[in-house]
Design a protein around this nucleic acid. Structure first.
Lengths: 188, 188
DNA sequence: GTTCATAGCTAATGATATTAGTTTTCATCA
DNA sequence: TGATGAAAACTAATATCATTAGCTATGAAC
């Protein structure tokens, strides 16, 4: 049976991402992951240097997918800077709702050390869109505020911390609008 | 040796919180926790219905401590609504930096089911302060936005997602100011 | 002084990540 | 064509966990 590779690193990572979404990160065991791939747990070590490294790879995939989702949305959006930003932030939120476990693993884990390149790939297009709205000056600060707002919102949603009802879609649009309005006002 | 209780539920929870802060949540094992308390692991089950229940209790403690820290800061703050809010949000952030692991465990864990009463104890004083700034109407939405902004900011800090330098203290003040300004503008 | 609930203990189980060493396959080259 | 060697899997073993079952010692109450 051995030699012709049964799996690829990509397949392992995608399967891991699927299982994490289906059962949660804590429930993912290397044994069951290997089982789903038709191999045994120790064989995974040929591809990844332990569980931590595997999860790091999953996070890279998640980042790629998020960047791609935001790009697609941003390209299809109007040229108006405000609309463009809102569209991208909506796509960000939709992504987080589509892959909640992977999202929180990638951006909500204190122990993980995020990849700088991946982080830049996520941040730079967003920073450009922010700069188009409120100017180049202070755009890093403005970006960080917007990211904090959106990440915080979806994180609190996903952790079940908004328990008092209300239209969470509409609220999201409103708070993004509030932040962008304040931003524009204070940079003029 | 048995009978005179060696531990109390409170001591267990406090010790667990300390160890979580010192070594991270994942590194906390019931064996070593029990060891630090001078008992054996199975004895913990007399006080808590498993590790999950213990962590739930730790989260309640964290919430209490955070509420208390914000209260203290809020009471000492000026009567000006803006200053008061900024002071409370700063205290929130300082708390998160003081107990990062406990903070992320309490508010960044998808699997945990937050206690509704604890959540209210955290939210209501804040909502009152928000209402004093931008009015009762829409104060829940305004509160959620502010919480999202602040939680998102500290969460991204604690997960090492702000890697491009800058004065993170000053940035925090600025983005809170931006949000509050936008809030006031759009509710007049 | 006996009784009995309490609070701890030991021992065992099943799951887990990880390591070491072994076996099978097949592409390459003599 | 047949031997060789690296690739890719495997089995077996270890150490660490959480959790459960059942036992033992303490001391308060009668």
């Amino acid at each position: 049976m051995p030699y012709p590779a049964q799996v690829t690193p990509e397949r392992i990572v995608e399967q891991a991402a699927d299982m994490i979404e289906a059962e949660g990160v804590d429930a993912l065991s290397l044994g069951r992951l290997a089982n789903a791939l038709g191999i045994k747990a120790p064989s995974l070590y040929r591809y990844f240097d332990g569980k931590t490294a595997l999860l790091r790879a999953v996070n890279l995939l998640t980042n790629e997918r998020l960047v791609s989702a935001m790009h697609t949305a941003g390209d299809a959006a109007a040229h108006d800077a405000h609309d463009r930003l809102l569209t991208m932030m909506r796509a960000y939120r939709v992504f987080a709702h589509t892959r909640p476990a992977a999202y929180m693993l990638a951006y909500g884990d204190t122990t993980a050390q995020p990849d700088p390149d991946a982080l830049l790939a996520l941040a730079l297009p967003l920073q450009a869109a922010v700069a188009a709205w409120s100017g180049e000056a202070g755009s890093l600060t403005a970006l960080r505020g917007l990211w904090a707002l959106v990440h915080g919102y979806v994180a609190l949603e996903l952790t079940h911390n908004f328990q008092r009802g209300g239209d969470l879609d509409a609220t999201f649009d409103q708070i993004v609008h509030v932040y962008l309005a304040g931003l524009k006002m204070l940079t003029e």
